[in-house]
Design a protein around this nucleic acid. Structure first.
Lengths: 225, 225
DNA sequence: CAGTTTGGATAGTGACACTATCGGATAGTG
DNA sequence: CACTATCCGATAGTGTCACTATCCAAACTG
């Protein structure tokens, strides 16, 4: 397959494909001459992955490169590799939110670790999502002009865990599920990102439900028209 | 208060304040002469609101203007005004995700309405979050190369509703809570947005927990180091 | 063998969120 | 009352990001 074919198959324009290769998001094609190269299914799948991370995940090119790089590093086990890819994701979320080096973040991380441990949560001590959580709490409190309230996570912990439980289902992970394809790991990241907008949209609807159901009946009827 | 003071108080630079006024995110100060104006607490609060919507919510200037405009329109009731502000928010989320005019979206909206109604959810028929939900499902399915699965929302509906229930608590809304300040409505939007990153970070941690707890004990111990 | 296509390099584009400068007017100070 | 600092609003410029367009010589295609 040459570039134009790759472009047609993937729906991504030729200059954009060239751009992705330039930026190190994709390997170049295998050269068949001084200025001729061949592309395969690997490239096709990688392109779909990049588009998913960009359009659904809303990730920037730099973050995508980092996620792909983490996923590509040889890891002893699937979970370790996935954790690393997720960390790359967490590290880059909302750059200008709370300062990366805000002095209030590390103690918040510790407190959150304790709270979640007491709820029975198990995760790697250095999980990127944990510091992302701390930063989100600090940034949110700043915006409201209030003190960060780590206890608020207790409110969310149980239902969020229920969501994760349902998403994973009864599936068991084999110990020897090792050395999986780097694209497989990256797709797992996509899978996590994919339903984020769904959950947020549902939450907004649920807020509306809660607000409406706290109104007297006749007011509600008027609004439903 | 003149502009420099407003800048100092709010922590927003003078040119940026001018820019916000130019873009219609804030009213200009009350003029005290041909080229002199005075700013009050209204402006200070509005600035905090804009920064919160931008930095925590990650909203663009255009969306912020729309949310503020919706919140500002005179409404008969709080819920109606809030719904309208939320719709402005939903309409602009992730612009390049699924085409606004994707033919698969309207039937998806209908199906979702039925599914959620069967779960006992109550919301305005034209709720913006509903079409946002439909678009998120279509875009996600596109990215994975699969068919959109509206049934997936059944998985999420119950725990998400539980989140909303806990957020609202036992509070009752008075019927005559009408004609509230436009900033109050806009702040309610901020409140909804504020905990979105918290929920998403928690979900990622919960995923890690689920993955880890499906591994044999000795592998888990190795990873926790 | 004429004409299109290729891959790689370099430069340009448009959207976005600011940021800098200008110019004339005004406010505060000695 | 002079004089410097600051003000407001208008206009133009900046940096980043994700592409997109153009160019070139060397293939490939009919």
């Amino acid at each position: 397959m040459r570039m134009q074919a790759l472009s047609k198959e993937s729906g991504v324009s030729v200059p954009t494909i060239k751009y992705y290769i330039r930026e190190g998001l994709m390997p170049p094609g295998t050269p068949t001459g001084p200025n001729q190269a061949d592309y395969g299914d690997t490239h096709l799948r990688r392109l779909a992955l990049i588009r998913a991370l960009r359009e659904v995940g809303g990730l920037g090119i730099v973050t995508i490169r980092e996620v792909l790089a983490s996923a590509g590093e040889t890891q002893a086990d699937t979970i370790g590799a996935m954790g690393q890819a997720m960390d790359a994701l967490a590290a880059s979320a909302r750059p200008d939110e709370a300062g990366e080096h805000d002095p209030r973040v590390p103690p918040m991380v510790e407190e959150l670790r304790k709270i979640l441990a007491s709820e029975g949560w198990v995760f790697r001590p250095g999980a990127g999502a944990l510091s992302a959580l701390a930063r989100a709490l600090v940034a949110g409190a700043d915006a409201m002009g209030e003190e960060p309230a780590p206890k608020a996570v207790r409110l969310y912990a149980e239902p969020v865990m229920e969501i994760a439980r349902r998403e994973f289902g009864p599936r068991q992970i084999q110990e020897d599920e090792a050395r999986v394809d780097e694209d497989t790991i990256a797709w797992a990241v996509v899978g996590t990102i994919l339903y984020e907008p769904v959950i947020l949209a549902l939450r907004r609807l649920a807020h509306e439900h809660e607000a409406l159901s706290r109104l007297p009946e006749h007011v509600r009827r008027k609004l439903s028209q």
